[in-house]
Amino acid sequence: MTKQITKQITWTVFDAPPYTIVDGKNRDNGISDRIRRLLTARLSDYRHSTMTVPFPRILTSLKSGAEWCFVGGVKAPDREAFAVFSRPVAMFYPLRIVVRAPNRARFEALGPLSLRDLLTKHRDLRTSVLRYRALAPAADALFQQYPPGQTYSEFGEAFRMLLNDRLDYLVEFSSIAAYHARYLGAPGAFVGFPFAEENRVPVFPRVMCAGTPWGREVVARIDAVLAAERASPAYRGIVEAWAADEDLPRIRAVYDTFLASD
């Protein structure tokens, strides 16, 4: 007799290429998508479903205890009040001030760049942030202290606004900026600058599940899979997928830090 599966995980996704890709020719082939497929294959005693929802709704539903998980959540103190986090699954690195290529000289003239200065001394320069996002501790603290005049709910929306000169800059990871430039048919449209408050070490996304007994059980199972898989060449290939060629040496140099993180 076939054993009946009664346990279920609902995996939530939103369009955040190259981590989760919900449409187009690369659909379901982002970094987080591949990790989610690996986990669903290993957790065969669970029934799995996938739901596309806006990121703010993911957080709201986890707060209410929904039996959902999300591949790509950054651990932050406010989130630990309602969610439980796995070991790191990938890395966000490096973080940059991203501008339109024609504005390179304008921003070079402000260098060395500081996000604090952009948000305080150059308020005429327009930026935006994803609602409820955790980027990196120093950048998050500055955005909380000096919130920009607008927010967005989808990455594509923000990069279209940047490309169309409705924003002057974004604070974003270079792989995300490179993907959206190609997606918008304008590879090379954006340039990224280092800045004073960028993280010198990667930010680690994790699987984020509801902070309930169910969620803790699921994360314990996920951590066991990650412990067995993360050092493999195949998993390294997932982490490096979509990275810009110029970023690969830096990613490979910190991979051992990634493996040692919990």
Rank of each mutant, 00 (worst) to 15 (best):
S261I: 00
S153K: 06
A16C: 13
E246W: 12
A16E: 10
V171I: 13
R182A: 13
L62V: 02
T127S: 15
V129N: 06
V239W: 00
Y146P: 01
R216F: 01
Q4T: 15
A90F: 14
Y46K: 09
S174K: 01
D165I: 03
G215R: 11
P88A: 12
L170G: 03
D168H: 08
D223P: 13
W214I: 13
P194H: 03
G237H: 09
D247R: 01
Y146S: 02
S44W: 03
L226R: 07
E154W: 06
M1K: 12
A186T: 11
F55G: 03
C69L: 13
S261M: 10
S114L: 04
G211R: 09
L118N: 08
D45E: 12
G237L: 11
P187A: 14
Y235W: 12
A231Y: 06
R116M: 03
G192I: 00
V22I: 15
A220H: 08
L38S: 05
N164D: 15
R252T: 04
S44M: 02
P112S: 04
F92T: 05
V207Y: 09
R36E: 12
V22E: 13
G215T: 13
I176L: 01
L167A: 07
L125I: 08
R252M: 04
K7G: 02
L135H: 08
G24W: 12
A109L: 02
R79Y: 10
R36K: 14
R133I: 01
T10P: 00
D117R: 15
V218Y: 05
L248N: 05
I238N: 04
R47Y: 03
A158H: 11
P77G: 09
D124C: 06
F70M: 07
A224I: 14
W11M: 11
G211I: 09
F159S: 05
A196G: 02
V218R: 14
V129I: 15
D140A: 04
H122N: 14
D223L: 12
R116T: 07
D245S: 13
G237M: 10
M161E: 14
F70E: 06
R106Y: 01
G211V: 11
F70G: 07
V22Y: 04
R104I: 09
P202F: 03
L95M: 10
A177Y: 00
R131G: 03
L163K: 12
Q8I: 10
D28K: 04
G24P: 06
R87H: 13
A231N: 09
V203Y: 01
L118A: 09
R206V: 10
A220S: 14
V89A: 09
A178C: 03
R87M: 12
G72N: 11
F190R: 01
Q150T: 15
V218K: 14
Q144I: 00
L259T: 10
T151E: 12
T52R: 07
Q144P: 00
M208C: 09
N199F: 00
Y169K: 01
S49K: 11
Q4A: 14
F195C: 01
S49M: 09
M161I: 05
A105R: 08
A196V: 04
D256M: 04
T212Y: 06
F190T: 04
V239I: 13
A234L: 06
G156R: 14
L115N: 08
P205N: 07
A231W: 07
V53P: 02
G237V: 13
P112C: 06
T50Q: 11
P205G: 06
